[in-house]
Write a protein that binds this DNA or RNA. Structure first.
Lengths: 212, 212
DNA sequence: CGTCCACTTGACACTATTCAACGGGCGTGG
DNA sequence: CCACGCCCGTTGAATAGTGTCAAGTGGACG
């Protein structure tokens, strides 16, 4: 899946909290994450923070740059990140597969955003967390990084709060509730979902809702 | 701005509550709104509703279809709508201008979604309403439909609630507050913003935040 | 051994929701 | 023409859900 690497593309590395891009600054290149997680976010004047995208292995950061835009929101590494840096343009060299995966990535990102609008606008705290954990599990599985019903989940509770639009303490409490209800097992950055159908139910996922 | 009409494109009309597209059904065509407003939304199993996009004159509904996707969320007319129907593909005929506006429209839509994630995740009711009214005013101005500090605003308070992730009664109360503070004048579907800077302040807009 | 950071828990405040009722405008039908 | 119903907007009172403030625990690391 991540096997094709065009000859001219460079490997780059980032440490946690290091910027892959800053707002309004021409990006260094178009990155494809090979390993690790990154996030895009916005800060309000008084310090409130909202994460607006999570980038997992396989994801392009950030497809819009290829269409001539500058980042309107900064992107920062959450873990150690290994990425492939390509020029800021629609992937020209290589097979049609690469281009197809590029477009797919862009549209998937946009549909995920639309799903998150629903979650942030209309779902309760527990539903938001269920949605997040399901989405991340499915995405990890999609790139071969899930093992049975488990996967790595390198986010802190504060990160989770900034994704779900909650406060860290409420995230903590709600996760506790989910644990006692047997919906999830989550410890030391490792997630296990005993019953995926039950978690989907708890997330108020409608038939057509991502994650599929 | 909306002057170029390729010869083969058809004009189509919709009445309020009529569908421009249904989820999972191959769309009839790629629409560009010429007049009127439409919305994309999702329903949760228990009936909660969240509007995830508003389409105003000039907007394409829905650019992703041109990349081979089916609608994952239905699109419904909010007012009488007049639109131009084109084949579901990246506009090929016509000048480069048309293609450029198509891509711009897609990326703008995506950036607006990202801004709304911030609003739904982290802003208070008053900030959400201020953000919405500002965005709509700026978009109306962008397509030449604003007059001074005023523009048409054909949404009901229930529509506004479903965009902002609030309840209709809280929208009502919060609009009252904004009126008494002199932030907006809003009656019979007509919006006037006496002091745009003050409204931006009330919206907790950061420097880089859309609307510009 | 001490510091820092993530996580945890309790008590309380507050924003937004819920439920309920009422008024006005407007179209429809008698 | 008026009566009726319906949708939209408005307001009040009680409640639920989430945020805020504060304190304490535990592990990782220098």
């Amino acid at each position: 899946m991540l096997s094709q690497v065009a000859a001219e593309d460079a490997l780059v590395f980032f440490r946690p909290h290091e910027f892959l891009a800053r707002e309004n600054e021409k990006p260094d290149g178009l990155y494809q994450i090979l390993e690790g997680w990154a996030s895009r976010y916005r800060l309000l004047p008084d310090g409130r923070r909202q994460i607006t995208a999570l980038y997992l292995p396989g994801d392009y950061c950030e497809p819009h740059w290829a269409l001539g835009r500058r980042p309107s929101q900064p992107i920062v590494a959450l873990t150690n990140v290994r990425a492939r840096k390509a020029p800021c343009q629609i992937p020209a060299s290589g097979s049609g597969d690469i281009q197809a995966s590029f477009w797919k990535n862009m549209v998937d990102g946009s549909e995920r955003q639309a799903s998150w609008l629903v979650t942030l606008g209309r779902r309760t705290a527990l539903e938001r967390l269920a949605h997040l954990l399901l989405e991340l599990f499915e995405r990890m599985r999609g790139c071969g990084l899930a093992y049975g019903q488990q996967c790595s989940l390198p986010l802190t509770q504060m990160d989770i709060a900034d994704v779900t639009g909650l406060t860290p303490v409420h995230v903590n409490r709600t996760l506790q509730t989910m644990r006692t209800r047997g919906l999830i097992e989550l410890q030391s950055k490792w997630l296990r979902i005993p019953d995926i159908a039950a978690l989907r139910e708890a997330a108020a996922i409608s038939v057509n809702d991502a994650p599929a």
